[in-house]
């Protein structure tokens, strides 16, 4: 295959992969701190997409501006879900360690409720929003790059970097990292662990709020889109390393480029089977992922 097509595929893969990574960030963070695999991750993204859509449809708000509403709204939702639904499970376990399967089942219940409540409320129709202005397509070396996707991809890097910095240098960030390392020690040092948990969950969801606003301009929105992104996020996060922020981005890019290049040779569906096979192999042979610690 010629070099142009190959490099085009790689560029496609980088953009799409970075977006996957940005979306998966929250999942990794939540697992890293709470040790909870949030089965409802995709559902939160779906909700944030709808928030941006309704802001545009009802108030004519520009999707990028809707991030101002989306981010706090999703933060609040995440905080609430953690405090009301997940916290009782954690409290029940005396050592404040969540039995992993119970947490998975609980978040699976949340996923069922959220996805189907959205289906009941919004209907199954696909919505698409149209930005009022046209974000230009940048052509680099003959390869057209969609401006909207580029913005979302760059945001993924920026957010990953920003969160890593914040985790290292802010008080709350340090508390979160301490809890992630050893919750008992953290509790004994006077950290309010349940507050940290709620903050983390809220933070993870607010990242989804941002990305919902960023990808709404080019993605058709329906209740089913949550599950599709959810499964991709699991693959990305496991590949990159559960609990690692940079791992989410790296994992996303690996998957994105792999699928982009593979689908030039085989059908896109075979490429997605390839990702799943890769996912299984990593889980069995290197469960800590590319960037994770063993």
């Amino acid at each position: 295959m010629d070099a142009f097509i190959l490099s085009y595929a790689v560029v496609n893969g980088l953009l799409q992969g970075a977006i996957y990574g940005g979306v998966a960030l929250g999942l990794s963070l939540i697992f890293g701190v709470l040790r909870v695999v949030n089965f409802a991750h995709g559902s939160f993204l779906m909700l944030s997409l709808y928030i941006s859509f309704w802001c545009w449809s009802l108030f004519g708000m520009d999707p990028y501006l809707s991030a101002l509403i989306n981010i706090p709204a999703m933060f609040a939702l995440g905080y609430m879900v953690q405090s009301v639904i997940i916290a009782p499970l954690i409290k029940r376990e005396s050592a404040m360690v969540v039995e992993p399967l119970s947490a998975l089942l609980l978040t699976a219940g949340v996923f069922l409720v959220m996805d189907n409540a959205a289906l009941m409320a919004f209907g199954p129709d696909v919505r698409a929003l149209q930005a009022g202005y046209y974000v230009p397509t940048i052509v680099v070396g003959g390869i057209p790059i969609s401006g909207q996707r580029l913005i979302a991809a760059l945001a993924a890097f920026a957010v990953a970097g920003g969160i890593s910095y914040w985790l290292r240098h802010s008080d709350m960030g340090r508390a979160i990292r301490a809890t992630a390392q050893n919750r008992d020690a953290a509790a004994m040092s006077g950290i309010n662990v349940s507050s940290v948990y709620a903050m983390t969950f809220g933070l993870g969801c607010s990242v989804l709020g941002l990305f919902g606003a960023l990808i709404a301009p080019f993605l058709p929105i329906s209740p089913a889109i949550g599950l599709a992104f959810g499964i991709k996020s699991f693959i990305v996060v496991v590949l990159g390393g559960l609990g690692s922020i940079s791992g989410a981005i790296v994992g996303g890019i690996v998957i994105g480029v792999f699928e982009a290049v593979a689908s030039q040779f085989v059908t896109a569906t075979s490429a997605s089977i390839g990702s799943l096979v890769l996912f299984i192999l990593i889980l069995i042979f290197r469960p800590q992922g590319i960037m994770g610690r063993a």
Binding site: L106, V110, N116, P223
Partner: peptide, 17 residues
């Protein structure tokens, strides 16, 4: 639509907790 799955989800959450 999807009502029965909402019920399943709520039942599941109640059950786990």
């Amino acid at each position: 639509l999807g009502l029965h799955l909402v019920v399943y989800g709520l039942a599941l959450m109640l059950c786990v907790l």
